[in-house]
């Protein structure tokens, strides 16, 4: 197991290196380069040269890439003999702020939105999936399956708009805009504003999680161990909650692990719709303004979160299911 984790961590490092390499190359082949995108169409050659020199873009691409890797790992100063000075994601072209401080601001806010939504989704979807499995092919199972198909097939932003329409425009119960503020504490003071974004994200997540839970429970209910439990006289509820539930939760553990990436990267559409100040909204704005250091920083963090989430999912899977052993 330990050997497996070490090998996976090594793979994770390689994946992160590939991500940064790929994005750096893509940025390099952009027509006109960042200078033209940032300084506008009326810029002259001298200004472009100055911009490229200031941002180190006149260096060969492998030097630029090496510098960036040195910065984000904090190894650059160490190799230069200055000791470790923390990681450095560069400086935003547009916001007069270091990318590191932007990320430090946005990650907790995104964690609040996505974490809360996923927590609610799991709390609702697990019992819902079990209920559907128990009531399979009855009218309420069909109704719930229909509802989950409906939410699953809905463009997220439209679902958000419909919720805004009902709860903000018609009933005047909740604000149509997400909470605003510089840190998580500010967001917490505006709980009503948090409800609609969280509900939007939670609803679509429930739709997919409950379907996994339903099929996983169904799959387990026909296993031999269920027959054994019944044969020795366990009650229906004991079979369901003591035996089936624990096994049926295993795929959900994997789903949770895979969702960890989103806790870092945020929910682009939901954040854009509700103007929720998280990583997704930041990425959208940075994308439209071509603020490449910010784009790069967010992608590195998102990739890191995803890779770590996948690793965690695999480990949880092995811990929860003793039949799974990563020996190779």
């Amino acid at each position: 197991m330990l050997g497996y984790i070490v090998r996976r961590l090594f793979q994770a490092v390689i994946v992160i290196i590939l991500v940064t390499l790929g994005i750096t190359l893509l940025l390099h082949v952009l027509p006109g380069g960042p200078a033209r995108a940032i300084l506008g169409p009326r810029v002259n050659a001298v200004q472009i040269a100055q911009f490229n020199h200031d941002n180190g873009l006149d260096q060969p691409i492998w030097v630029q890439y090496g510098t960036y890797l040195g910065q984000i790992t904090g190894l650059g100063p160490v190799l230069g003999g200055h000791g470790w000075q923390g990681v450095n994601f560069g400086f935003s072209y547009r916001l007069n702020q270091s990318v590191g401080s932007i990320l430090a601001q946005d990650v907790p806010k995104t964690m609040l939105l996505v974490g809360l939504s996923y927590a609610i989704a799991i709390i609702v979807a697990v019992p819902l999936g079990i209920y559907q499995a128990v009531r399979r092919n009855k009218i309420d199972d069909y109704a719930l399956t229909g509802a989950s198909f409906f939410f699953y097939s809905m463009p997220v932003f439209w679902l958000g708009i419909l919720l805004i329409g009902v709860f903000s425009f018609t009933l005047h119960l909740l604000p149509a805009v997400g909470p605003q503020g510089d840190n998580v504490g500010d967001l917490f003071t505006q709980l009503p504003a948090l409800i609609l974004p969280v509900a939007t994200l939670a609803l679509i997540t429930i739709a997919s999680f409950s379907r996994y839970m339903r099929s996983s429970t169904l799959e387990n209910m026909v296993q031999d161990y269920v027959r054994t439990a019944r044969a020795k006289g366990a009650s229906d509820s004991r079979v369901l909650f003591a035996h089936v539930l624990r096994n049926a939760m295993i795929p959900i553990l994997t789903l949770i692990g895979l969702s960890i990436g989103y806790i870092f990267s945020g929910a682009l559409i939901t954040e854009a719709l509700f103007n929720y100040p998280g990583m997704g909204l930041r990425f959208w704005n940075a994308g439209l303004q071509q603020d490449y250091p910010v784009i790069l920083g967010i992608i590195v963090i998102a990739a890191f979160g995803t890779v770590m989430g996948n690793l965690l999912a695999d480990i949880m899977y092995a811990v929860a299911d003793p039949r799974v052993r990563y020996s190779r």
């Binding site: 994946v15 991500v19 790929g22 998102a302 990739a303 995803t306 890779v307």
Partner: peptide
């Protein structure tokens, strides 16, 4: 390579 592209959220 697949892992690397998958590590970037699709919408991003």
């Amino acid at each position: 390579i697949v892992d690397a592209v998958l590590a970037v959220p699709g919408l991003f």
